[in-house]
Amino acid sequence: MTAAIVVLTDFLAVSNRALAYAAALAVPLEAHLVLLHVRHDGLLAPQEYAHRHAGRNLRSTQQALHTLAESQPVPTQIEISESFLPDAVAEAVRHHQPLLLVLGRPGTATAPAEVVTSAAMDLLRQAPCPLLIVPTVGWDAVAPRRLVLAVDGEPFALCDNHLLVLRMLEKLNGLLEVVHVTDKRTPKHGAAHILYTVQAGGLAGHLSPNQVSIVHGLQPVAGILQAASDFHADLIVLVARRHNLLSSLFHRSVTAQLLSDSPVPVLLLPSLD
Rank of each mutant, 00 (worst) to 15 (best):
Ala3Trp: 04
Ile5Thr: 07
Val7Cys: 08
Asp10Tyr: 02
Asp10Trp: 01
Ala13Leu: 09
Val14Trp: 00
Ser15Asn: 05
Ala18His: 05
Ala22Pro: 14
Leu25Arg: 00
Pro28Ala: 11
His37Asn: 13
His40Val: 11
Leu44Ser: 09
Gln47Gly: 09
Gln47Phe: 08
His51Ser: 07
Asn57Cys: 03
Asn57Pro: 00
Gln62Asp: 02
Ala64Asn: 07
His66Gln: 12
His66Ala: 13
Gln77Ser: 13
Gln77Ile: 14
Glu82Ser: 11
Glu82Ile: 04
Phe84Ile: 12
Pro86Ser: 08
Asp87Gln: 12
Asp87Ile: 04
Val89Leu: 08
Ala90Phe: 02
Glu91Gln: 14
His95Phe: 07
Val102Tyr: 09
Pro112Glu: 06
Leu124Asp: 10
Arg125Ile: 02
Gln126Ala: 13
Pro128Glu: 08
Pro130His: 03
Pro130Asp: 03
Ile133Val: 15
Thr136Glu: 11
Val137Trp: 01
Ala141Pro: 05
Arg145Gly: 08
Val148Thr: 14
Val148Cys: 09
Glu154Asp: 06
Ala157Trp: 03
Ala157His: 08
Asn161Pro: 00
His162Asp: 15
Val165Pro: 00
Leu169Val: 02
Leu169Ser: 04
Leu169Asp: 02
Gly174Ala: 04
Leu175Thr: 14
Asp183His: 13
Lys188Phe: 11
Ala191Ile: 00
Leu195Cys: 02
Thr197Gly: 02
Ala200Tyr: 08
Gly202His: 05
Gly205Pro: 00
Leu207Ala: 08
Gln211His: 08
Ile224Tyr: 02
Phe231Trp: 09
His232Trp: 03
Asp234Arg: 09
Leu238Ile: 13
Arg241Glu: 06
Arg242Phe: 01
Ser247Asn: 12
Leu249Gln: 13
Val254Thr: 13
Thr255Arg: 01
Ala256Cys: 02
Leu258Cys: 09
Pro263Met: 06
Pro265His: 08
Leu268Asn: 03
Asp273Phe: 01
Asp273Gly: 06
